Simulated assay, not measured.
Amino acid sequence: MMSCWRSLLLVLFVALGLWLGSPVQAASLPPQVQELEQQVSQLQRLVDAEDWLEIRSYIHGPMGLTRKNLTGLAVTLPKEQKQEVIRLTKELGQSLEKLDFAAKGYDQPEVEAAQAKVKKALDRLEALFS
């Protein structure tokens, strides 16, 4: 009987640890990266809807400010991490420029390719802080 309770208690602790583990990882991301994550999701919805004008407005508006904030974040980091964040921010900017140009030309395949590069840069940023 006692071993049954121990097994049950062990399962509960493992489940609790897994449940609590996920939010801690997300909370470890800097707010600038969390904001970018939300914006990339919103941008994906606009790409899926082929809302060309809104894609371009979103890139030049909220996402432009986030890129500036990422550069500000880089200044506060250790040298190697700082260089990587700056490089990824530039890569993100170049991908957004390509996406903007493709949206201007109503070129859905190019928009999707550029959006994939934006997502890839975000994934690398998240991995850098994980």
Rank of each mutant, 00 (worst) to 15 (best):
M63D: 14
L73S: 07
G72N: 14
A27C: 05
E112R: 15
C4G: 10
G21K: 12
G17V: 14
H60V: 13
E97D: 15
Q81S: 01
A114R: 08
K120N: 04
R6T: 07
M63A: 10
Q108N: 12
Q108G: 02
D51F: 07
E91L: 09
P23S: 08
A127H: 12
L125D: 10
G17Y: 14
T66L: 02
T71Y: 03
F101N: 15
G64C: 10
L122W: 07
A121F: 13
R67S: 09
L96E: 10
A103M: 03
W19S: 15
Y106R: 10
V75M: 11
L12H: 15
A26T: 11
Q34F: 00
K82R: 14
A74Y: 09
L92G: 12
L29F: 10
A127G: 06
A102E: 06
R56A: 03
K82N: 12
G72Y: 01
I86M: 07
V111Q: 08
P62S: 03
P30N: 07
V85K: 04
G61H: 06
V14G: 14
A103P: 00
K120A: 08
V47H: 03
P31F: 05
V40C: 01
K68R: 08
L43A: 01
R45G: 05
F129C: 04
G61P: 15
Q34G: 04
Q39T: 02
V24L: 13
E91M: 07
E97I: 07
R56P: 00
A15C: 14
L53G: 01
S95V: 01
G93E: 06
P109V: 08
A26F: 13
R45Q: 10
Y58Q: 07
L20S: 13
L77F: 06
Y58R: 07
E37D: 14
R87D: 06
P30I: 01
L122R: 04
K82P: 03
G93F: 08
K68P: 05
R87P: 12
E126L: 06
Q83K: 10
F13G: 13
W19T: 14
N69V: 04
A49S: 00
L9K: 13
I59N: 05
Q83V: 01
